[in-house]
Every structure is written in structure tokens, then in C-alpha cells.
């Protein structure tokens, strides 16, 4: 199976509701002094609901740039990006912040938890920016922590938790607003292989409950967990293939 079987999309079209992520000729250029760096040179990707996709590529291939664009942390120089049938490629800063809050759950390599806040408060953060009241917030954050198996660690601070537990807190935080996509950037990069496998097992569980997951990695073992692999090279789509999941 290849990317060729995706629906054809033209400028001016609106993607069908089952497509969570659609990029159309997505281009990103950076000005580095006098030089222009072409990080992405027109990438077309379509990801449907409940897909588990790994984005792969060597460093400099543009996968970080693609992840930033998909995560609405950045805006493209050219092309379109549709998230959940909404064109987000030309939104303002504040609108992008709202999209990040509602539609995207980030999981980072370095966890990026607030060191002074306990697990519960860390998970509450997206709900705070969503403007949800204290009681509701606490209930939802607690439920999210229970979902990742940390119901008994809510009042622990990050430095009182192991690496695997920290990443679970980060995943609970990513899920708490029920985002359209879970966007994980090298989620096992700072973990030993056993803990990494546990985290990947958790990803499978989430995928089984219907979560759409985009995993950015350069490790083949980790990418092998996904059901589809997108390979980037020099800012272009090199390969887009469906694979059987290893569990």
C-alpha cells in the first residue's frame, strides 16, 4: 500500500471528515543569514482517524520541521495544512494556541514537565488554558493519570518519579483534553529499552481505543510499532508505506 491510494486533493478543496491531517504542497523555508534553507519542499500527507503513523528520516530530512507544522507550533511558508477539516495554515498566533490546546497532545523526548508542580498539576495545565474550572479540571486530570497507570502518584513531583513514570505523566497531560492527534517526538529517546517498550505498549493501548497517533523517530524498532511509516529525505516525501504492527 502506498500514499498513491490517498484521495486526490487540489487547492480550494476541503478534506473529507475522516481525514485528521492533510498537508498540501507544504513548504517551509528559513532565512539563515544570506542563505535560504529549504526545510520542507512541498509535502503532501493525509492521515485518517485512528491511524498510527511514524514519521522517519535522518537529521536534516525535515521531520522536525514537519512535526512543528503538524503541531501548530509553526506556520508554513507555502502550502496548506488542514487539521480536522479546519485550515490552520493561515491562523494567527492566538488561534494556533487554541488549536494546540484542543486538538494536539504533545509528548516530548525530554518529557517537559514543570519541575515545581506535582503530577496532577502538570496534567491540569492544558485544562487551565482551556478555561476549565478547578474541580472539573482536577477530576479530569486524575482520570487521565489513572488511564496511564499513575493513579497513586498524583501528588509526586517529576523529580520523585522514574523516567518511565515521567513520560506517562506527559502522556496523561497530552490526552487530558481529548486531542485529535497525539504527537510524540522521540518519546523513548531518554528511556532504557525496557521502559521504552512499556511506553510503546501504552501507545498501542491508546491506539486500540481509537486515538490517532503520529510518532516522530529515527529509530527503526520504535517506528516498527506504527502501522504506517512516512520517510522524509531532504525535505521531500521519500516513502509512505503501511506495515504490520509488531507488538
Amino acid at each position: 500500500m502506498t500514499a498513491a491510494q490517498a484521495m486526490s486533493f487540489h487547492t480550494g478543496d476541503v478534506p473529507t471528515p475522516d481525514i485528521v491531517i492533510l498537508t498540501h504542497h507544504l513548504t517551509r523555508e528559513y532565512q539563515m543569514g544570506a542563505e535560504v534553507v529549504h526545510a520542507l519542499r512541498g509535502v503532501d500527507i493525509q492521515i485518517k482517524k485512528n491511524e498510527f503513523v511514524a514519521v522517519m528520516g535522518p537529521s536534516g530530512s525535515g521531520k522536525s520541521t514537519l512535526m512543528n507544522l503538524i503541531g501548530c507550533l509553526d506556520t508554513p511558508t507555502n502550502g496548506e495544512y488542514w487539521l480536522n477539516s479546519q485550515k490552520v495554515s493561515d491562523l494567527s498566533d492566538d488561534e494556533l494556541a487554541r488549536i494546540r490546546n484542543k486538538e494536539i497532545g504533545f509528548v516530548f523526548q525530554t518529557f517537559n514537565l514543570l519541575p515545581r508542580a506535582d503530577a496532577l498539576h502538570n496534567v491540569e495545565l492544558p485544562l487551565i488554558y482551556a478555561g476549565i474550572g478547578a474541580k472539573d479540571r482536577r477530576d479530569r486530570a486524575a482520570r487521565s493519570l489513572q488511564q496511564v497507570g499513575l493513579g497513586d502518584r498524583m501528588d509526586h513531583r517529576p523529580n520523585e518519579l522514574s523516567g518511565g513514570q515521567r513520560q506517562r505523566v506527559a502522556i496523561a497531560r497530552a490526552l487530558v483534553n481529548q486531542p485529535s492527534i497525539l504527537l510524540a517526538d522521540e518519546p523513548t529517546g531518554n528511556l532504557d529499552s525496557a521502559t521504552g517498550s512499556e511506553i510503546m505498549a501504552l501507545f498501542h493501548e491508546l491506539h486500540d481505543t481509537g486515538q490517532t497517533i503520529v510518532l516522530v523517530t529515527h529509530e527503526h524498532d520504535i517506528a516498527a510499532h506504527a502501522r504506517r511509516q512516512i520517510h522524509l529525505l531532504d525535505g521531500k516525501l521519500e516513502r509512505d508505506e503501511r506495515t504490520e504492527a509488531t507488538t
Partner: peptide
Amino acid sequence: TREIGVRKALGATRFN
């Protein structure tokens, strides 16, 4: 800086 980045990624606006 890192904390600000995290907060922004999680949906904090400039005004927040």
C-alpha cells in the same frame, strides 16, 4: 524559557 515553551505548546496564548 523551557517552561514558557511548554506552556505555549499546551495552549498558552501570548497574553497568558
